[in-house]
């Protein structure tokens, strides 16, 4: 793995699921990893700056809050950056990836309700002139439970 500081590794290993729910959570986290609150906050800030950390917050299962879908597009190679950048401009798009397939652009759209999702998909189709496949979730067998990193 890309080497992270000892403190960053400890925070990733211990606090992906259950950060302390108390007024000063970073104090409690610091005690648990034998550090200081200032160092914990500084390390989390650095991790966010370098991109290792997306955020520290809640993961909400699909369907609890609003509606979402996975969308896919077949984008001509020469238009891929332009279309991908357009897709990324929507606040409702939270993940956007190029994948190795004729359907080469894949993104997740999340909005307060299904109409909001439909609206974004329709706007992307109108703007790009390309079809967007809509692949809504029907059943989750495993959702994001955090990630065991092997540091070796």
């Amino acid at each position: 793995m890309k080497p992270q500081s000892r403190l960053a590794r400890a925070l990733i290993d211990r606090f992906q699921r259950d950060m302390p729910l108390e007024p000063r959570p970073f104090d409690a986290m610091a005690r648990a990893v034998d550090s200081t609150p200032a160092d914990v906050l500084a390390t989390l800030g650095e991790m966010q700056e370098t991109g290792t950390l997306s955020r520290i917050g809640a993961v909400v299962p699909p369907g609890v809050l609003g509606a979402s879908t996975l969308a896919a597009m077949e984008v001509p190679e020469e238009r891929l950056d332009e279309v991908a950048d357009h897709v990324s401009t929507y606040a409702e798009v939270n993940h956007n990836y190029e994948r190795e397939h004729a359907l080469n652009l894949w993104f997740v759209v999340t909005a307060a309700d299904r109409r909001g999702v439909d609206d974004v998909l329709a706007r992307i189709e109108r703007h790009t002139g390309l079809a967007v496949l809509d692949l809504p979730l029907e059943r989750a067998y495993r959702i994001d439970l955090g990630f065991d990193v092997s540091w070796s």
Binding site: Q16, L21, E22, P23, L53, V59, P61
Partner: peptide, 30 residues
């Protein structure tokens, strides 16, 4: 603040929050 914490705990217990903590980016971790 107290009510916020209590409600977050209740949301976690009910499953409306699946997890609360660091959300990492896989690519940056290698």
């Amino acid at each position: 603040e107290d009510e916020t914490i209590a409600r977050l705990r209740a949301l976690k217990d009910s499953g409306a929050i699946k997890r609360l903590g660091l959300v990492v980016r896989h690519r940056e971790l290698g």
